[in-house]
């Protein structure tokens, strides 16, 4: 079942790319296309891992540890 959610996430990511690529291409800035694609790829992989029940690191844990360290 989780597999299907992962496929759905990948499908949505492809749809987002297909939706936005024409706009980005029209402006003709190579760097914009790259930064958009990298952000999309990064968050898609995180979402896929989340749907597959991989336990992801929680940024709030790091924040909590950091301030415990400083404030004692």
């Amino acid at each position: 079942m989780n597999m299907w959610y992962a496929f759905a996430v990948i499908f949505i990511a492809i749809a987002i790319f297909a939706l936005q690529y024409p706009f980005l291409n029209k402006n003709g800035k190579r760097k914009d296309i790259w930064s958009f694609s990298i952000i999309l790829l990064f968050f898609t992989s995180i979402s896929v891992l989340q749907t597959l029940d991989v336990s992801l690191p929680n940024p709030l844990d790091y924040i909590e540890d950091f301030y415990k360290l400083i404030l004692g």
């Binding site: 996430v9 949505i12 990511a13 987002i16 939706l19 936005q20 706009f23 980005l24 914009d32 958009f36 952000i39 999309l40 990064f42 968050f43 898609t44 995180i46 979402s47 989340q50 992801l56």
Partner: peptide, 12 residues
């Protein structure tokens, strides 16, 4: 263009 990708991250 950034709105939808950032949204995926924010939901996770």
């Amino acid at each position: 263009p950034l709105l939808l990708p950032l949204g995926m991250g924010m939901i996770v």
